[in-house]
Design a protein around this nucleic acid. Structure first.
Length: 154
DNA sequence: GCCAACGTTGGC
DNA sequence: GCCAACGTTGGC
């Protein structure tokens, strides 16, 4: 089995939050319209560990854990003129954008961005870098494991 | 290929 | 609503 990898996905809870993932079960992670983020998604393997982060939330922070259940395949919203994610420059023959499927693993006690920032053990996490806007970022194993610890009952 | 203008993200 | 920090677009 391939070495497990760790990722952080940003979502806006008003659009699709961790609670929605729990409610719906296995779901597509679609609407990614940034090449770097897409390329990271293409590196994902089934079983990879995902941290779901809520942005544009009050407060922003980590909500839960998920797991990759299907690797990248075309995101159909790019072909749908009625979708917010429609891309007129993408064609079925040569799609630009991919999605993965993921399933919820467990909710974490909410860990706010402020808490993450103040934790020296998490220094260097991409999500904490000023100006970082990427919605898909790789996470180091040590950072993932530290976040698991933060999510344990006290 | 350069780069200015514009659009988006996301914390605050 | 503001604004920093990008990414994208398009003229040249």
């Amino acid at each position: 089995m391939a070495k497990q990898q760790f990722w952080l996905l940003k979502s806006e809870p008003d659009v699709f939050g961790f609670a929605d993932l729990v409610r719906l079960g296995e779901s597509p992670w679609d609407g990614v319209r940034n090449y770097q983020a897409r390329n990271y998604m293409r590196d994902m393997k089934i079983g990879d560990n995902i941290i779901i982060y809520h942005s544009n939330a009050t407060p922003p922070g980590i909500a839960g854990l998920a797991r990759v259940t299907k690797t990248t395949h075309p995101d159909l919203t790019q072909f749908d003129p009625t979708s917010d994610y429609y891309d007129p420059k993408s064609t079925v023959e040569n799609p630009r954008w991919d999605q993965i499927l993921l399933e919820p693993v467990k909710a974490l006690p909410f860990i706010s961005l402020e808490t993450l920032k103040q934790d020296a053990a998490l220094e260097g996490m991409l999500i904490l870098r000023k100006g970082n806007r990427l919605s898909v970022t790789p996470v180091e194993k040590k950072h993932y494991q530290h976040i698991l610890k933060l999510g344990e009952p006290k």
